[in-house]
Measured scan of single mutants.
Amino acid sequence: MPSETPQAEVGPTGCPHRSGPHSAKGSLEKGSPEDKEAKEPLWIRPDAPSRCTWQLGRPASESPHHHTAPAKSPKILPDILKKIGDTPMVRINKIGKKFGLKCELLAKCEFFNAGGSVKDRISLRMIEDAERDGTLKPGDTIIEPTSGNTGIGLALAAAVRGYRCIIVMPEKMSSEKVDVLRALGAEIVRTPTNARFDSPESHVGVAWRLKNEIPNSHILDQYRNASNPLAHYDTTADEILQQCDGKLDMLVASVGTGGTITGIARKLKEKCPGCRIIGVDPEGSILAEPEELNQTEQTTYEVEGIGYDFIPTVLDRTVVDKWFKSNDEEAFTFARMLIAQEGLLCGGSAGSTVAVAVKAAQELQEGQRCVVILPDSVRNYMTKFLSDRWMLQKGFLKEEDLTEKKPWWWHLRVQELGLSAPLTVLPTITCGHTIEILREKGFDQAPVVDEAGVILGMVTLGNMLSSLLAGKVQPSDQVGKVIYKQFKQIRLTDTLGRLSHILEMDHFALVV
């Protein structure tokens, strides 16, 4: 994948999101292997301009796509893939009243899908469409860049269908997702969380590099694949309309690839034109409109599966009536509230959605109805927002919020430890010299600072030695090549209790 991002070429006709291997024109390309080798690009942008032909009021008969309808489940399912879809609609009884809503608040519980998330729908649909058009064949390999849930859905379907599955996901995604993927037989590649989507090191860039190296491999490409919004247009939206008897006044959905909100909203605009569509985008993402909503100094966020630093091709923002931004604290607070007060075992993005819903639905009156999409299960986040310690460490809970008995030293300040200034190293000294210094002084790690004293990161003896043994660096290389740029900081005025929580999850903390 090139470091400079080429513009994806656009073909003359058809839909841009065809499933299957992508040609340089962004659509299915038939021909000899030699032709494909000559024409197939190194990668295709996940934010390529959409060429979708959908228009409100256009006859369904003019759609270029294969459409399906929700099917009634048999008493005995032939395999677990038949437990994807037909998820329950559940009334939220307490939270709406707590925040003064007059309307009825309903939750579409997508964590009841077989793999635990709304992404099971698009995973199965992308595979079925690729099999139907002859792209996927027995023994082929599926590769997908994902925040985890699409990966789980694909790995689940691949396990049943017999495909090899490789999932490329950023490091910030939970260990629970990784464990589930491994249990399903998927191979996992992790990428830096802070890598831009168009960087060769991003999950998108690495996935395309693997595709170019592995024979008979395919990126189904949830960011561009029409099967993504079509899955929701054909099934999720129809289920909502049936469950609500066609009567709903507002739908609120958090947005990642945009397939969920695009597919549902398009069908609702056709069948229930008075329904307002509300999009939820986390602070630090750029999906919301108008652009002024996205202006923030924050560039990272903890909530998973929603928000991006690019506009995915499948996201149709014209069908969203209003956007709201959400933050991590309210997302996790509301997710825990949904679990504790409503018994809905949902993930953090569901918290984002409901946090926005109780604001947006203030305009609705008694007798009206708001539906929220709860995308995934708490299963993926047992060591994250479900953990009091994690919430404390991230600053989303305060010590006084917890009532468990603490040891005698818990409320003492870090400054009472009488710490001395640490050994520091410059980023320009060599790895070999740094190892000598650390061994001589008896230290395992040291902060790396520039000549102005600005902290650049941390270097550890173990990481340097393993990097040297693996051949990633040489003793003569500058130590700046092996620094940890993500590390926890703590102030002298913070409590030892807070430091204790940090050290339970990290090997060190830097006192500043």
Rank of each mutant, 00 (worst) to 15 (best):
T68R: 09
A130Y: 01
D35P: 09
G100W: 07
E37C: 08
L251K: 01
R121L: 01
A155T: 11
G148A: 08
V10L: 12
S27M: 13
P2N: 14
Q222V: 05
T235E: 15
P41A: 07
I240S: 07
K30L: 03
C244N: 01
I122W: 01
M250G: 01
L268Y: 01
I166R: 09
G57R: 12
S3T: 07
T53A: 08
R266S: 07
D133G: 06
P70F: 05
C165S: 05
S63D: 09
I122R: 01
A8C: 01
P273C: 14
K267I: 13
A186C: 04
R164C: 10
F112L: 06
T193L: 09
A237C: 10
H203L: 06
L106V: 09
R224F: 01
G274F: 14
C275F: 07
K108P: 01
D129G: 06
G26A: 01
V160T: 01
P2E: 14
R125Y: 15
M250W: 01
H66N: 06
S27A: 09
P138T: 12
G100H: 01
G134A: 09
L230C: 15
T235H: 01
E171G: 01
H66L: 09
T235L: 09
A71G: 15
I219F: 06
L154R: 01
R121Q: 05
G20Y: 01
E176G: 07
T260W: 07
I152G: 04
P74S: 10
R190L: 06
G258A: 03
E201I: 01
T260A: 08
L105P: 04
K172F: 01
G205P: 09
C272G: 08
I152A: 03
N225P: 01
H65V: 04
E176N: 01
E144T: 06
A183F: 01
A24V: 13
N93S: 12
G11Y: 13
S3A: 09
G139D: 01
I44L: 08
R190I: 01
K211W: 07
G26I: 01
A231Y: 07
L81R: 04
W208Y: 13
E34F: 10
H22W: 06
H203G: 01
E213T: 14
P273K: 12
R276Q: 01
E171H: 14
V189P: 11
G162F: 06
L28Q: 12
H203Y: 07
Q7G: 09
I219S: 06
G153F: 05
V160A: 09
C272F: 10
A237T: 11
P192D: 09
D79I: 09
Y233P: 01
K269Y: 15
G263S: 01
K137L: 11
S254P: 12
L124I: 07
D133Y: 13
E4H: 15
M89W: 01
C275R: 06
D133I: 01
A155R: 03
H67P: 01
M250L: 12
E201G: 13
R132I: 01
R121M: 04
G116S: 07
I92A: 03
P70S: 13
L101F: 05
V10W: 08
S227Y: 15
K75L: 15
L154P: 14
R121F: 05
G31E: 10
L230F: 13
G85L: 01
I95G: 03
R45Y: 01
K97T: 06
S73W: 10
R132W: 05
G31S: 11
W43E: 06
S199D: 12
K94F: 01
I240L: 01
A130W: 04
R58K: 10
Y223M: 07
T135C: 05
D35N: 12
S63T: 09
A265T: 13
K94G: 11
R182E: 07
Q7V: 13
D140L: 03
G258M: 01
H203P: 06
L268H: 01
I264Y: 05
S61T: 12
E128Y: 14
G205M: 01
E9C: 13
R209L: 08
S27F: 06
D238F: 08
T260K: 01
N216L: 05
A155V: 06
R276G: 01
